[in-house]
């Protein structure tokens, strides 16, 4: 861990704040499903724990973590898309 990690965190949180305050309440449920899917990024940690043959405990915990994170990735992206596909306009949107 280094100070640059802290910069990354603060800047990412700032970008996140700027973007997410602009998400309309209309899409708050898909937003939460989407961040769920993105939280599956803990795969990058769990894959290493599961596959680097460090010790048995690490492998076991790693495999459970991979399973849980992958379930969020697959389920999260599928359900977000399923929800978003239901949002339709009454009048076709004006061409920009």
């Amino acid at each position: 861990m280094s100070f640059s990690d802290l910069y990354v965190f603060v800047l990412a949180a700032f970008v996140g704040y700027q973007i997410i305050t602009r998400v309309p309440a209309l899409l708050h449920t898909p937003l939460m499903a989407a961040t769920n899917a993105i939280s599956g990024i803990s795969l990058v940690g769990s894959l290493v724990a599961a596959g680097s043959d460090r010790n048995t405990l690490s492998t076991v915990l790693g495999v459970i973590a991979v399973t849980a994170a992958m379930a969020n990735v697959v389920g999260g992206f599928l359900i977000t898309d399923r929800m978003l596909s239901m949002f339709k306009r009454a009048t076709p949107s004006k061409p920009n």
Partner: peptide
């Protein structure tokens, strides 16, 4: 083991999504 976890996770995730 990675493959086991990825497959299992996908099997759990699919019904959760669909």
């Amino acid at each position: 083991w990675i493959l086991v976890g990825l497959v299992l996770g996908s099997l759990i995730g699919y019904p959760l999504g669909v």
